[in-house]
């Protein structure tokens, strides 16, 4: 089955089995391995990508459902060189250890702050509670996301 969509600003067309998940399509067909699979049953959030502005679990989405959508993965949130302000805040606060959950945390936080650059700590925790991290205990992740708000407010002000 064919599906055409945009990934990180580029148009792609894939011809895949209807049962192929969007996560497997991104990873195995398109080579975007930054999107991780931690559970494949919709609980851990490691596979989170942004579909038309919304954080979506790519393990629960079929590739063919992405037809016509605009998808952003962690690769698409990364500047050519160096780190985005959100990524830099993660690094500064030591908000990752093994880094396996990190792409999902970054995409989830990006979707949140793009919509709500003033989200408070409770709101950040609430939104991140759909993503499991086994290493950090979340404290530094929340700190990082709170610090990154400034950059999103600025972006909002500029746009």
């Amino acid at each position: 089955m064919k599906a055409a969509f945009e990934v990180n600003g580029e148009s792609v067309e894939v011809d895949v089995e209807p049962r192929l998940s969007l996560a497997d399509c991104l990873r195995d067909v398109l080579g975007l391995t930054g999107t991780h699979l931690g559970c494949e049953h919709g609980v851990c959030g490691a596979c989170t990508v942004i579909v038309d502005g919304q954080a979506v679990r790519s393990c629960l989405t079929l590739a063919v459902q992405a037809d016509g959508e605009r998808i952003t993965t962690v690769e698409g949130l990364s500047p050519e060189a160096g780190l985005s302000p959100l990524q830099a805040a993660f690094r500064k606060h030591h908000a990752l250890q093994c880094g396996f959950c990190t792409p999902g945390m970054v995409t989830t936080a990006h979707a949140l702050l793009s919509e709500e650059p003033d989200a408070d700590a409770d709101r950040v925790r609430e939104v991140l509670s759909g993503n499991i991290c086994r290493c950090t205990g979340y404290v530094p992740i929340v700190e990082a996301v709170l610090e990154a708000r400034a950059a999103y407010r600025k972006m909002e002000g500029e746009s």
Binding site: G34, T73, E75, S78, F90, R91, G99, T102, P103
Partner: peptide, 18 residues
């Protein structure tokens, strides 16, 4: 700040599934 973060934050880690 950790060296490994630069690749892990950008989705460029090389985990076994990759």
């Amino acid at each position: 700040e950790r060296v490994e973060d630069l690749r892990l934050l950008r989705g460029r880690g090389q985990f076994v599934a990759d």
